[in-house]
């Protein structure tokens, strides 16, 4: 499952809050200011692999949504 990486590493990913990360085969391969940047960096490195792009929320965004 692609969120496995998030489950294992979410606390350490907090340093990227407000940014996006790209995960390939359970490995963090790119960080970007937005999803496009993270995806394109990952795509350059791993053109044939399945890429997962996740947003890392700021602390404010983790309070309950209404």
């Amino acid at each position: 499952m692609e969120t496995e990486y998030l489950l294992k590493h979410s606390e350490e990913l907090s340093k990227y809050f407000g940014k996006c990360v790209a995960i390939v085969r359970d490995e963090l391969v790119a960080v970007g200011r937005d999803r496009v940047e993270a995806y394109e960096k990952a795509k350059q490195k791993y053109p044939k692999e399945k890429i997962a792009v996740f947003y890392i929320p700021t602390e404010e965004e983790t309070v309950p949504l209404l």
Binding site: E2, T3, S10, E11, K50, A52, I56, P57, T62, V63
Partner: peptide, 22 residues
């Protein structure tokens, strides 16, 4: 994240023949 638990799941969207996970 930040000590709070959020219901976040993976969803795949299709770009041509490629599936990308968000």
């Amino acid at each position: 994240y930040n000590g709070r638990h959020l219901p976040i799941i993976p969803v795949e969207l299709k770009k041509g023949e490629e599936w990308i996970v968000f």
